[in-house]
Simulated assay, not measured.
Amino acid sequence: MSEPSPTQRLLDATDIERSVATVLPGRRVVTSAPLSGGGFATVWSARLDDGADVVLKVAPRDDVRLLRYERDLIAAEGRYLRRLAAEAPEVRVPRVLHASPDLLVTERLPGRNLFEVQSGPAPVDDAPVRAAFGAELARVHRLTGDRFGYDAGRTSASTWSAAFLAMIDDLLDDAAEWQVETPAPAGRIRDLIVRHAGLLDSVRRPALLHFDGWDGNLLVADGRLTGFVDGERFLYGDPLLDFTSAALFRRIEDEPEHPFLQGYGGVRLDAPVLRRLSLYRLHLYLLMTVEMPSRRITREAQPDRYERLAELLDGELTELARPVPAPV
């Protein structure tokens, strides 16, 4: 078993019982167990004495170093889920039972995550699952924020280009502080973002985004999508940003028949869209590189991860150095 991330608290069943008794008075834990798969919060499942299955997400301790964008993530997920419950109740996300800066308690949706299912001895046909997730995100993206970027006083701006550049700057500052070697100098990365400001500002509406829709956050039962989880990294911006994790480590535009695209509908893969997708993959791969030491992942221990991300980043940097296509 791999060593937990420094951001994850070491808890036991007694801690879970105490938390449930405090925030859900009158309800008692019958059984509980930690859930694996994530690298930020500590996550446990519990069955209560009334038969309900719940999930508890516990924030890192106050003295743990975090990346800049990771501030207030547990409370952020509570806000995300509650907004969807209020304004898009048909979207299949967990119902919030308790939300505070340190602890989120939700119902547990049925199913196993798609990554586990596809890693098993009898993987399922995942096309219906991916198409259903595309349709779900299309509904989420109809909701709009007041600003681009993160909410509640975190990194944001009145334009998408300014917010996106600020998000990149946060990651580059984190890289410097954590002494992470990036595949290109910070100045070059930043200059490429600035060059594309006009293209980014063709996005005029700050859509509600999930950002972390990789297979590990899609729940599946009997070959169908039962919901999606881990909205803690949500932000407002270009809907295309959500297309990167939906085809992690791949270029979704190379798969025009990808079921996610079919489920989402109405996507025109023209030159400006392809360039924005490249920008968003740059952001994602940079984040995944910069977060390594904060998760106690060393380049020496996982050279394949670092080298793979470096190769992917280099490919996007090469693409972004080409002439900028005109917005349409």
Score class of each variant (00 low, 15 high):
G213P: 04
D102G: 15
S278H: 08
R9W: 02
Y280M: 01
L143W: 03
R276S: 01
L279W: 03
A175S: 02
A157L: 01
A135Y: 09
L209K: 04
A321S: 12
G153L: 02
A176R: 15
R27S: 13
F260A: 10
D126P: 09
V124F: 00
L67V: 06
Y69N: 14
G120K: 07
G227H: 05
V20P: 08
L109C: 05
R79L: 12
P101W: 10
Q262L: 15
D170V: 01
A132M: 02
D126F: 04
V54Q: 03
F211K: 15
K57A: 06
R204T: 10
W178C: 14
P25Q: 11
P6N: 07
F164N: 03
S119E: 11
G265M: 10
V29A: 10
G37P: 11
L109V: 02
T7R: 15
A122K: 14
L10E: 15
T289S: 15
P259T: 08
N217Y: 04
L282A: 03
E257R: 14
L84R: 08
R322V: 06
L225Q: 03
A186G: 01
R195Y: 07
L200C: 11
T318C: 13
L279V: 00
A166N: 01
P25Y: 12
S32N: 00
G37D: 10
R65Y: 04
A301H: 09
P110V: 06
G187W: 03
L269R: 09
W160E: 01
D53W: 13
E253K: 12
L286Q: 09
G149A: 09
P4R: 04
Y69D: 15
V23M: 13
T182Q: 04
F243C: 08
E70I: 10
Y69K: 13
L313V: 11
P256Q: 08
T289G: 12
R95C: 09
A197I: 03
P25D: 11
L56R: 00
S19P: 00
L66S: 02
A166T: 13
E319P: 11
P6E: 10
D304I: 10
R61T: 13
E90W: 13
A21Y: 02
